[in-house]
Design a protein around this nucleic acid. Structure first.
Length: 944
DNA sequence: CGGATCACG
DNA sequence: GACGTACGTGATCCGA
């Protein structure tokens, strides 16, 4: 219905509180905190920009809380009584919210003595009664009471942070009752933030159950009398009055006087001048750019900007730390050159030498850099000053004429000296990929910089909800340059219609490929200076940058696997799983898919009637290992058979089958791909295939390690850091007794057991080990209790003892958390930052999760830094010792795997041990020695 | 495509 | 007995 008006009511006050806690603390050029305001501004922009879109606003108003006093205080003097003062750096942002609203020329409603919720309810109802649709921009649970439809006019809600519409189903999902009953549920459960009492001891679960069962609040309270004796019954009876008063407090007033008329909320367009002034005053440069670049302002009839997909969080986080941008012209793809003659190529190479800095990108026939063919190379020397050199286009149709392009070998020969020249810096985005492709084509590249890694070293962890915090080029272009890159899909299509890049016509290919180089060049100009101003230089230059060529080479080496052995294992696993499956079906008395947790749960707990089935939030019984082990312990034979089936099925599909598939036909080896930006803490991650999770913990799984073998005449050497994270914890938290234990080469878990329990035996050592790990991961009494199989208060006593024996640990945890809360990030000993945007979240689970991660990150991250430094130094050290032929193949977080001639084992072991043990120095002097354990064998399994 | 499960440090 | 319980990853399967 195009002509049905659609009113958007923005709950401004609630938004800024939420934005404040979810966005990083930014300041504008004058030093005023503006993080929440930035989020607010981007939200208004997006809303205003949706004018004329389906379901977008035709009318819009912002509603703010003017004062905290309302009719509710008359009813209940404790209403909102214990609310803490807003944080110091949020206070100056309140007036700015008004300024921002005015800058968009939007009406802003605030009435003394009336809460925003009531005002929103009143406007929503009036509009709905006129037949308008209404969207309330908020996620406040109180407002969910309003959701629904009347005479075809609909009220819904929009949570802009989650970009989610909230309609009847969503409300029912949250409360278990329809919107009109939400008030009854709220009245029972109360609200600690607003200090609404509800009924003590009743939370959302119980509340919604009671209302769903009895219909409404009064009925539920009445029913209490007939309940059987329980705590709940007592409480319902005793606190009935509280609940009834709460019911009034949570009821929204829908009859507030309306200060402005609905018609005045009509959204027609946003005049650009006041908005520009506001954006510029507060340093919101990316928005300002969009305003200038677009057709003027948001919500003009032409859709203003294609580059509007970043979330407030992501945009804000970079906005706040942004350098003033050199004034680059907008990307103009028509400016790019397609280089088709050797003369033109030589011209570009010459210019690259003169510029001494060139952004480079390669295009290939597939995403696997160990299998693909090189299809073209692009270069960029400045904004819009970029070219594409096609080298492998056409050819799928043998009869069609290939487009004109330089002979690949000739072109690479022309490029190679420049790519290898120490005098020309080559900038890539994810250079490891390009390095591998070029190396496979006989071209070495050095020196290089990498914008993906720079972004990671600056902004790891800064994203919220995994949105907008990645380090991919398209994402960074949006975030930092306000530019939308041509997508690969647009160029190559998708699904069955997809074509390889080599079949893309040259004009389109040039636009896509040269743009990538151009954007890389621009990102480099933007990100590189930030390293210096934001303290990222050390970690980038000393740790991550040198690692790129090293890891690239490891990937190219690959590792040999014994295909025959894997195939044999696959067969064994297959026949065993088949046998087990039959037995399982027999016991169950029905054929079902054993691999389906859902079906399995129904069989175990419904059909066979086993007790203790717990359903998770998906409404499905949990059938994980711990559950099955319990059932098996209780004598359920089917459970132990399923466990065995699962283990074998997992090993077969994930390892023995998949690893055979992963053997590269050209090299006969398996080449994983390491991500240098995969883990927030700075660890590497491994994919396609993941070689960092090859089984070792069970005997049957360990057979898979035996299939990783050395080539003829060689052995594999595995070098492990022993207990590196605990050693680092001892150093970083400065715990004398632990440091001493490591210095003396003691068994650290035994030492902990002595300190904690007074004696060492298998039991106390095991407990001590669990506690040691619990400390590294951030601890809760419940978590520890679960692991140790004791009661939470007993676990708490152990934690207390631990902290008493090692007071440095507790001080360290407190200090680190304070630091992260204040600065927003944690730091490793080598200066690697990990950001924790949720560290002060109001959501307890979210906040505590961040706290645990923040305690762990410096330790896990420092360990990652150390092994990375060892890796970067390893080959030069081996070469110096005349061991250049030793090949470093794998890294598994605290382990390095090498392949070498058997005769060199002793010499190489000495070098490897020395490099690994000394990897922290000289940058960091550790108070504990780094222990390294080395083993060798013809297989990886044997090397342990 | 998300959830459940399970492999590793 | 409200909330949800250890940190960091990636691959596979099922089922909507």
């Amino acid at each position: 219905m195009a002509d049905t008006p659609h009113l958007y009511l923005v709950d401004g006050s609630a938004y800024i509180f939420r934005a404040y806690h979810r966005l990083p603390p930014l300041t504008d050029p004058e030093g005023t905190p503006v993080g929440a305001v930035y989020g607010y501004t981007t939200m208004l922009w997006k809303l205003a920009d949706d004018l004329h879109k389906a379901d977008g606003p035709t009318h819009l108003a912002v509603v703010l809380d003017k004062s905290s006093h309302s009719f509710r205080n008359e009813i209940y003097d404790q209403y909102k009584a214990h609310r803490p003062d807003p944080p110091e750096d949020l206070v100056p942002q309140f007036p700015l919210i008004r300024h921002a609203t005015r800058a968009f020329s939007l009406p802003c409603i605030e009435e003394p003595g009336v809460e925003a919720d009531d005002m929103i309810a009143s406007y929503a109802r009036v509009a709905q009664d006129q037949g308008w649709n209404v969207t309330i921009v908020s996620s406040d649970k109180d407002l969910m009471q309003l959701v629904g439809e009347k005479d075809g006019a609909r009220i819904d809600m929009l949570d802009t942070m989650k970009n989610a519409r909230i309609y009847i189903e969503e409300v029912e999902e949250k409360f278990g009752v329809p919107p009109e009953k939400v008030g009854d549920v709220l009245a029972l459960m109360g609200d600690s933030v607003d200090n609404i009492p509800g009924i003590f001891g009743v939370g959302p679960k119980t509340a919604s159950k009671l209302i769903a069962e009895h219909g409404d609040l009064t009925a539920a309270l009445d029913a209490a009398a007939d309940m059987k004796k329980s705590k709940l019954k007592e409480r319902l009876l005793e606190h009935r009055a509280d609940a009834e008063m709460s019911r009034v407090l949570v009821t929204l007033r829908e009859d507030c006087p309306l200060p402005i008329a609905l018609d005045e909320m009509k959204l027609e367009g946003v005049p650009p001048e006041p908005l520009a002034a506001f954006l510029s005053k507060h340093g919101f440069t990316s928005l300002l750019k969009r305003l200038d670049a677009g057709t003027g302002s948001p919500s003009r009839k032409t859709d203003l900007n294609p580059a509007r997909q970043d979330t407030p969080g992501a945009a804000a986080s970079s906005e706040g730390s942004r350098q003033p941008l050199p004034d680059f012209p907008a990307v103009d793809r028509s400016a790019y050159e397609c280089v088709q003659t050797i003369e033109r190529l030589e011209h570009w190479v010459e210019r690259a030498h003169a510029a001494r800095l060139v952004a480079v990108d390669t295009e290939t026939s597939s995403l696997d850099c160990m299998l693909c063919d090189l299809v073209g190379v692009s270069l960029a020397l400045g904004p819009n000053d970029a070219c594409y050199i096609p080298l492998g286009h056409g050819g799928s149709d043998m009869f069609a004429e290939k487009p004109q392009q330089i002979d690949r070998a000739a072109a690479l020969a022309a490029l190679a000296p420049m790519l290898a020249s120490e005098a020309v810096l080559k900038v890539f985005h994810n250079g490891k990929y390009d390095l591998n492709v070029l190396a496979r084509n006989g071209v070495d590249v050095s020196p290089i910089d990498d914008t993906m890694i720079i972004s990671f070293d600056l902004d790891a962890g800064r994203q919220l909800d995994g949105i907008g915090g990645g380090h991919g080029m398209d994402e960074l272009a949006e975030r930092h340059l306000g530019h939308t890159c041509l997508s690969f899909k647009e160029v190559c299509g998708t699904g069955r219609k997809a074509i390889p890049f080599g079949e893309v016509p040259l004009d389109k290919a040039t636009e896509y490929a040269a743009e990538d180089a151009d954007v890389t060049w621009r990102l480099y100009q933007h990100l590189k200076p930030r390293l210096a101003t934001e303290g990222g230089t050390k970690i980038y230059e000393r740790v991550d940058r040198p690692l790129v060529p090293v890891v690239a080479q490891m990937e190219r080496h690959g590792i040999k696997v014994d295909r025959t052995r894997l195939a044999k294992l696959s067969e064994e696993f297959a026949s065993e799983t088949a046998r087990l499956e039959k037995e399982i079906h027999q016991i169950a008395g029905t054929e079902f898919t054993v691999g389906s947790p859902k079906q399995l749960g129904d069989v175990l707990f419904d059909k066979l009637g086993y007790k203790g089935g717990k359903k998770g939030k998906s409404g499905q019984y949990s059938t994980d290992q711990s559950v099955l082990e319990r059932l098996s312990g209780d004598g359920a034979e089917i459970a132990s058979k399923v466990l065995e089936w699962r283990q074998l099925a997992k090993l077969k599909s994930t390892y023995t089958d998949a690893l055979q598939e992963a053997i590269n036909p050209e090299t006969g080896r398996v080449h994983t791909s390491y991500s240098l930006v995969g883990a927030q803490t700075g660890r590497l991650s491994s994919t396609d295939p993941n070689l960092q999770n090859i089984p070792i913990r069970t005997e049957i799984g360990r057979q898979i390690r035996d299939a990783f073998v050395a080539s003829e005449g060689h052995v594999l050497l595995a070098a492990d850091y022993s207990q590196i994270e605990l050693r680092l914890a001892a150093h970083m938290a400065d715990v004398p007794s632990l440091k001493e234990a490591f210095a003396n080469g003691e068994d650290i878990h035994a030492r902990t057991a002595t300190e904690m329990f007074g004696e060492v035996n298998r039991d106390t050592r095991g407990r001590a080990k669990t506690i040691n790990f619990a400390i590294l991961y951030g601890i809760s009494r419940w978590g520890l209790a679960g692991r140790l199989g004791v009661q939470p208060d007993e676990a708490q006593a152990m934690i207390d003892t631990y902290f008493q024996r090692f007071p440095g640990i507790q001080k360290y945890i407190v200090r680190k958390l304070e630091e992260v809360r204040e600065r927003g990030y944690s730091e490793t000993l080598f200066g690697r930052k990990t950001w924790f945007p949720r560290i002060s979240s109001k959501n307890q689970a979210e906040r505590q999760g961040s706290e645990r991660a923040a305690i762990n990150a410096p330790i896990q991250g420092t360990s990652a830094d150390i092994i990375k430094r060892a890796m970067a130094r390893m080959m030069p050290a081996l070469e110096e010792a005349g061991l250049a032929h030793v090949r470093m193949l794998l890294q598994v977080h605290d382990e390095l795997v090498f392949e070498l001639p058997e005769a060199d084992v002793d010499a190489a072991s000495a070098v490897i041990e020395r490099v690994m043990a000394g990897a922290a120095e000289p940058a960091v002097r550790l108070d504990v020695p780094l222990g390294v354990e080395i083993g060798t064998g013809t297989s990886w399994g044997a090397a342990h």
